[in-house]
Design a protein around this nucleic acid. Structure first.
Lengths: 201, 201
DNA sequence: CGAGTGATTGACTTAGATCAATGACCGTGG
DNA sequence: CCACGGTCATTGATCTAAGTCAATCACTCG
């Protein structure tokens, strides 16, 4: 529970696990909302249906992510949640969560903090997508992902996923990395990328 | 005050207006945080400085947007806020805002709701950016921007700004629009775009 | 009226997407 | 223990959609 581990036990205890087969849906647009969710494994698509019943993907929620937070404040879900692959989600019951936050301003504040940080991260990623050049985009990400020393990025997942997250094909991303390496802007070792100390650009 | 008009008068009354010349900064990384802000006019860049003192833009806050929400929950600002053009911001004092939320769970919930909706919107825009084709991206946006009738999009701002928001050059955007019009997918009238009722795709 | 901006279209270029292939490295099941 | 299938990382060749540069028209505003 990377996000919600500070919740009072009476909420956590009431949280429920749900396993979903690929294609199975967790809730549908219009269903009465009873919980917010965290993806423990897999991937879910949040989909809105248009009047002429086409589907628009609003978001893809991935492992570790929280979703349907807004349903805390409305009676019904505003979109479908459908498992893109076999998935496991944990649901935190709305009722108990809201009650806990009403009882304790501290809990409420923690939750707000989670939301505020999320906003910050999303804005940064959106700003990143405004950068057209693959090179600059990758550098933007690396610069912000740097560890305590200010130069080293520890890679956790697969490069492929990082590429997708950056909005690049994996091929374009690999090429960009090797180009950066070739020109000496970064060096790579197993599982880490180190930025060269630079002044200017 | 599109976002925070439900705040109790003792917070709103204590809010302050600040005018900034282009290039002037509102706060700097490390400054003790005392308020969150709303852009009343203009545009501010949120910038992080790296160890080797290069600048990374985290976000550009535009008119009507709230920013520095996360500073509610930390003692110092995590980045600089610099006016990109002549701007006016309203600051809501942290102290009073937090106090109001601690006193009234309703106020806290309203604020959470604002944050949650913001997250939702940001995720949707990020998902949109994963769509590579200009055509599909524009349709995604139009489909979600549609009014009560499910087909008509009222355009408020300039097309240019919409283009930028979509992550397209204005030229590419204009061309995409005319192409969509030519193939009959949309019709345009002054200030509005109407989607053709379609089945499939 | 001239300057500034938005909307639009044309011509041209290019960065990144696409398609394809290869080698390394699993895990697994016979 | 090894062959097989799968995924990841990587590189090459090619193509094209969108970016860039440029020009025009319509409008508004002082």
């Amino acid at each position: 529970m990377p996000f919600l581990d500070w919740l009072p036990p009476d909420v956590t205890r009431r949280s429920t696990i749900r396993e979903l087969a690929a294609g199975e849906s967790l809730f549908r647009q219009g269903d009465r909302s009873f919980a917010i969710f965290e993806v423990e494994d897999g991937r879910l698509r949040l989909i809105r249906h248009t009047i002429d019943s086409r589907e628009v993907v609003l978001h893809t929620a991935r492992r570790g992510e929280l979703f349907a937070e807004a349903s805390l404040f409305s009676n019904a879900y505003q979109c479908d949640a459908v498992a893109a692959v076999r998935s496991r989600v944990r649901g935190y019951p709305k009722r108990e969560l809201l009650a806990a936050m009403r009882k304790s301003p501290d809990i409420a504040e923690r939750f707000m903090e989670v939301l505020a940080r999320q906003i910050h991260g999303l804005r940064t990623r959106l700003e990143e997508r405004n950068i057209r050049s693959a090179r600059a985009r990758v550098l933007h990400r690396l610069t912000l992902a740097v560890g305590a020393d200010g130069r080293t990025v520890m890679l956790d997942g697969k490069l492929k996923d990082l590429a997708a997250d950056l909005g690049l094909t994996h091929e374009a991303f690999y090429r960009t990395l090797t180009a950066l390496e070739k020109e000496g802007a970064v060096t790579r070792a197993q599982g880490r990328i180190t930025l060269r100390k630079t002044r200017g650009i």
